[in-house]
Design a protein around this nucleic acid. Structure first.
Length: 421
RNA sequence: GUGGGUGUAGCUCAGCUGGUAGAGCGCCAGGUUGUGAUCCUGGAUGUCGCGGGUUCAAGUCCCGUCACUCACCCCA
């Protein structure tokens, strides 16, 4: 045997029984969106590289060093999506969805890829639930989006998460603030990397976790103190609506997101049980994204939630979110004739909507009963030669250990009635 | 990209100062040629991550390498 193949670095397989939890988390996170009238959209896993370099922003770490970019056989530069929003916006523009009623409300779920050094909660392949409301700049919509995100976490039963909220301003006030911040940072004692970051995206420096950097930032100017009248009014309105919606939050004036397109309302969901990668979701408003992708000058707001990280949060809180797995009935045949009948019975049960299974391969009665036990079935149907000779089968309750003989002619109906109820 | 930790059975791990590879769980089979959560008995699976070095002898010591993992960075 040669070297066994392994999943690529930074990726992982989700196997039963954990995969049932993954599905439950994914579906619970999307349920509020479906209930709120958002429409499902599916876009390609890869896009022209420009969708991300122009959308997410050339200066971001995501674009400058974390993308899976390749040239296809036709010489096109393509990139595996590092997030979902830019692709949805491209689709929104391409199909002129903006020419209809606004806002256009969309949700999506799927894989995203970033070439990063793996660590707890950070993988090169991950799954995001994405929710976007495009084409209308209304604080009530910001609040709706945030509340939908919160709802998904609440529905899962999560408690140890927090909503961090701030406003990043817009084109009318951020440039002036940026000047202030650049001047402030210039006076600090910073290493070369940080200094470079201060030039490319000064706001990012505020988010640095290193104590020696944070210690110098106490007096740093904050965006929320320099909002224009209109963006301040916008932010105030968002907070009013959130209060009305019963959503609580923590003001996070130094919150910065790694994607260039965010403006005004910006937020992040963090969970305390995850270690270093604590963000389970994040998002905000983006004024310039549509225009930067060649669309009309329209605003949008949305968020992305990490399904894998949320699953880790669910596990960290010890929540049991998976719906019951396994089958309802398990058929145990003894002998060739019984085997044939078992396969037929399982097929009939499944067709009738009863989940059922049987054993495959040569196994003794003991092994088959063990398999029945593990299948999660409440009842086993034992088909033996002796029974068949008498025209009956044994219907066994695996919980109470009670067993009754059932005529073969009534078997299907009896099994269906017994486990179906 | 930078730094720390760890690599022994399917899983969790033990293996003292070098001396012919272990336990528990799980899996399979038998005890019971017709009955699953218990019990008893037996069995299978390891190039001790990989390569090199030191030594009479290396899972154990040294070097390299790869993988995994955690943190910085970044973010879902």
């Amino acid at each position: 045997m040669s070297e066994p193949m392994r999943a690529p670095k930074g990726t992982f397989d989700t196997l039963p029984p954990d995969s049932a939890q993954f599905l439950a988390v994914r579906d619970t996170l999307t349920a509020p969106l479906r209930r709120a009238g958002y429409g499902y959209i599916e876009t390609p896993t890869f896009e022209d590289t420009a969708v991300f370099s122009r959308g997410v922003g050339e200066s971001t770490d995501v674009v400058s060093k974390e993308m899976y970019t390749f040239t296809d056989r036709g010489g096109r530069s393509l990139t595996l999506r590092p997030e979902l929003t830019a692709g949805l916006m491209r689709s929104f523009i391409e199909h002129r969805l903006y020419s209809g009623a606004l806002p256009v409300k969309l949700w999506a779920v799927g894989s995203a890829f970033r070439y990063e050094r793996p660590q707890a909660g950070r993988y090169r392949h991950f799954t995001q639930v994405d929710c976007e409301a495009l084409g209308v700049d209304d604080p009530a919509l910001d609040a709706e989006i945030v509340a939908l995100g919160v709802q998904g976490f609440r529905d899962l039963g999560l408690r140890d998460f927090e909503l961090l909220l701030t406003s990043l301003g817009d084109a009318t006030c951020r440039p002036q603030y940026r000047e202030l911040l650049v001047d402030f940072l210039a006076k600090l004692d910073l290493d070369e990397d940080t200094r470079r970051r201060a030039e490319i995206n000064p706001l990012r420096v505020l988010d640095d976790k290193r104590p020696e950097v944070q210690a110098q930032l106490d007096d740093a100017p904050l965006m929320v103190d320099h909002l224009s009248d209109s963006t301040k009014a916008h932010y105030d309105a968002v907070r009013e609506h959130l209060t009305d919606l019963g959503v609580s939050w923590t003001e996070a004036p130094r919150l910065v997101r790694g994607l260039d397109y965010y403006t005004k309302t910006t937020f992040e969901f963090v969970h305390s049980g995850l270690g270093s990668q604590s963000a389970i979701g994040g998002g905000g408003r983006y004024d310039g994204l549509s225009a930067s992708l060649g669309g009309p000058d329209l605003s949008g707001i949305g968020y992305a939630v990490g399904v894998d990280r949320t699953l880790l949060a669910v596990q960290a809180e010890g929540l049991d979110v998976a719906t019951s797995s396994g089958v309802q009935a398990f058929v145990v045949p003894l002998g060739a004739e019984a085997k044939r009948l078992a396969v037929k019975l399982v097929g009939q049960l499944r067709e009738a909507g009863v989940s059922a299974d049987t054993v495959y391969g040569d196994r003794g009665l003991k092994g088959a009963m063990k398999a029945a036990d593990r299948s999660g079935a409440s009842h086993a149907v034992v088909l033996g030669d002796r029974d068949l000779a008498e025209g009956v089968a044994q219907l066994r309750d695996l919980r109470s250990h009670e067993q009754v003989a059932v005529p073969l002619t009534e078997l299907f109906d009896r099994v269906r009635a017994t486990v179906g109820a």
